[in-house]
């Protein structure tokens, strides 16, 4: 089912984890997108499983200093990795805290509790440390940990 791996890290996860991830995504609301919100495509964070899935198809990419998501196709304003975009992108515009500034709304916004449940499900499914297209993420995370436990 999968294409050749451009990056060996993609093999750390099993087919079963990827199948389960797809089954979970199938429960998420989708928006009739007007393709106006690409200004929001920033230094996103995702589970290790989603990182590997993305990297498998599109390689491991990192933000430039402008912190725009490296998978955004700047000319068209479209996502270059739409099929394998992670949970955070799928939740954009669909939850009470991440409403779309351009008015796209699903039939019902997901509540905080539902979002938390989804995030923890993906984390449990993935295991490992979350990853980000922003190279400073790991350092940021480390600093945050130190702040929590001085």
């Amino acid at each position: 089912m999968s294409a050749a791996h451009p990056d060996s890290s993609a093999q750390r996860h099993t087919e079963a984890q990827l199948l389960a991830l797809r089954a979970l995504y199938a429960s998420l609301p989708r928006l009739e997108c007007q393709r106006l919100c690409h200004g929001s495509c920033g230094p996103i964070v995702m589970s290790a499983l989603e990182w590997d899935r993305l990297a498998e198809r599109h390689g491991e990419r990192a933000c430039d200093d402008d912190l725009v998501c490296p998978h955004l196709e700047r000319d068209s304003g479209l996502c270059g990795a739409y099929e394998v975009r992670p949970l955070i992108c799928r939740l954009w515009g669909a939850t009470e805290r991440l409403t779309c500034a351009f008015g796209c709304r699903p039939e019902r916004l997901l509540t905080d509790a539902e979002v938390e449940a989804l995030v923890s499900r993906v984390e449990a499914l993935s295991g490992g440390e979350p990853r980000s297209v922003w190279p400073g993420w790991a350092r940021y995370l480390e600093a945050a940990r130190h702040n929590e436990r001085p």
Partner: peptide
């Protein structure tokens, strides 16, 4: 949604008693 069972076969619809090539199967996920 549990990675230990997501990839296990949940459903096989056999179109023939003997010919495995005609089976259709789906995992739990």
């Amino acid at each position: 949604l549990d990675p230990s069972s997501a990839g296990r076969t949940a459903f096989t619809f056999a179109h023939s008693y003997t010919d495995a090539a005609l089976d259709e199967s789906w995992t739990y996920a």
